[in-house]
Design a protein around this nucleic acid. Structure first.
Lengths: 159, 159
DNA sequence: TTGACGACCATAAGGTCCCATGATATCCCA
DNA sequence: TGGGATATCATGGGACCTTATGGTCGTCAA
């Protein structure tokens, strides 16, 4: 498996540690990144996390703007400036910085959510809400899709 | 890790010393530069700092202009002329010159901000403001990017 | 002498490593 | 196919090391 999928909810222990789900660790190991690269998500109360694949994406985004441009500086500051590389301990646990936890509103448990090339870290309650909302959106889109296809079929039948 | 990421806020002690964050020191050590190369940022109230990677960038920028050109002279003067190489003490601390501190408005604490190949030194309050602004810019740019891609996809679908 | 500066030592907090445990999942073999 | 052996996983706790930060002492120069 080379993608982050599924979601897991795990608790923080007394020292503020959380285990990264084993299946996520396997993906990280495969992409050859020890430690976890993470940063606060831009427009969600969550933390984006991943390995080299995510780093490469960020770097591509930044270098798509000309060197020394204001846009590039803004990206560099807000992405590199707020990123962290968190070390895993021998058991595959991490300690998130206060900055990351407070951005996501995390206190005692974490929902890990696989998103393919990266995963997100949510406060479990907020994640459920976000998921419900996303599910609604997807349902609506699927309906649209269905009618569009139906129309297309009808069109073809007419020919 | 081979690049500067994340941000740390550390205090100056009574003698004006600050610890360079350990993870930054590790990057400097890796790029084989003892001492810290720094100069006032051109268009921000901050100090740019780094090792050989930063030096190389500066040199590339300067040599991109023809020798004896006004532009080259200007860059040479304002970059090399204001640069300093600060040395680290046994505990990884530095003492910044008055010139650098006053350019950044630093009095009692410093925000170290990783920007990949270099890092910046800010007065913590100013850094927070700058980060908020940059994050706003990035959000807007990312939205543009999203709609641009969407438009592109729609265009392709129409074909 | 005095004041600035550099080398060295001290310390508390927090991070890291290592080992232990219960629970669950997986495997293997009858 | 069933059921026990084994491996894996999440979680807990203690020992130790690193880090940031403070201070002391000597040295060199003004």
């Amino acid at each position: 498996m080379d993608r982050f999928v599924s979601n897991f909810t795990l608790r923080l222990d007394a020292k503020g540690r959380v285990s990264i789900p084993a299946s996520f660790r396997a993906v990280l190991a495969r992409d050859g990144h020890d430690g976890l690269y993470c940063y606060p998500a831009l427009d969600q109360p969550a933390v984006d996390a991943g390995g080299n694949a995510l780093l490469a994406e960020i770097e591509a985004l930044i270098t798509s703007y000309p060197p020394y441009s204001d846009e590039r500086d803004a990206f560099t500051l807000s992405l590199y400036g707020t990123s962290e590389t968190v070390k895993l301990d021998g058991e595959g646990r991490v300690i998130l910085s206060e900055a990351l936890k407070s951005h996501a509103g995390i206190t005692e448990a974490i929902a890990f959510v696989g998103l393919g090339h990266k995963f997100q870290i949510w406060e479990p309650g907020r994640f459920r809400a976000q998921l419900a909302e996303a599910t609604g959106t997807v349902r609506a889109l699927k309906k649209q899709l269905g009618s569009r296809v139906a129309a297309h079929e009808a069109q073809k039948a007419r020919e």
